[in-house]
Amino acid sequence: MFWESVFRSLSVYSHWELYASAAIYLVISFGPTVALVVSTEHSDNGFITGCLPAILMPIANTFATIFFVVNLSPIILGISDTALWQISWNLFVQSPLFILKLFLTVVFIQFILALLPIVGRVTSLASLVSGGVILANIIRLFDASLSLDLYDRLDFFPGFWFVVGILVVSAAMFYVVAFVVTMSSGLARDNGAAIGQLSVIPLGALMGFVPVFIYGAWLGIQLM
């Protein structure tokens, strides 16, 4: 089932909704911090110019991650080719308590993982756990609202070696894509360096969710 999940996860990259969601993810993640830095460029307040952006960015990134995974959840799970654009925005506007609980849960998990000596440095693991929690909560939400009775029958905890496999494959895919982008930008000569630098952030955003895509494909296989 592991390799089936890996191959199924690749289909996510064939949907335009992924790239549109990634663009919104980047805006939510970096937009508030950039706006704050620009607006306080000439400020002498050290907290505003230094500490506040450092606090604001991870908060914005967590909300961006929630939106990204919720919006693409049907595609990640492989149960639909359509993203939840309307439902995603409605959850943020009409169900702020649900989003707040999800936000606090993800922050708590990331905090605990950061305290672990070696595991805490594996960013793909944090992405996997955070994205997995978001997917599980979305499945539970729709399962309760539609009375599907699926949540209790799903296995949300893959085995140890399955998780290791996800992390290894995710790292391999990232380095392969990074190598291809680096080689392509090198061949571009004049604009090669600029292309390589500009591609770092969106590349990191897209490839950083590979563990979530594989895990979601594994859940989707159970839903079939």
Rank of each mutant, 00 (worst) to 15 (best):
R153D: 02
G186C: 06
Q222H: 14
L10R: 07
S73N: 02
V163N: 01
V37F: 06
F156Q: 02
L115S: 09
N45R: 06
F47R: 00
A194G: 12
T65W: 15
A20Q: 08
I24V: 14
R153G: 01
M207E: 05
N90E: 15
M207Q: 02
T105A: 13
L104K: 04
L150A: 09
A171M: 08
I75H: 12
E4D: 14
Q94I: 14
T65H: 13
F67S: 07
P74T: 08
M173W: 06
F63L: 15
F160W: 07
L97Q: 15
L148P: 02
T82D: 15
K101G: 15
G165I: 06
G120F: 11
N137R: 10
D155Y: 02
L223Y: 07
L36V: 07
L219I: 08
D149G: 00
L18P: 08
W85M: 10
A193I: 14
Y19I: 11
I66H: 05
S73C: 06
V129K: 03
V93R: 15
M173E: 05
I55L: 12
L102G: 13
A126C: 00
L100S: 12
L128G: 05
P32C: 10
L52G: 03
F30L: 04
L167T: 09
V107K: 12
S147M: 10
I87M: 13
L77K: 13
L219V: 03
P158I: 06
F98H: 08
V176Y: 08
N137Y: 13
A136K: 15
L56G: 03
I99G: 05
N90Y: 13
T40F: 10
P58L: 10
I48E: 02
T62W: 03
D143P: 08
P158N: 05
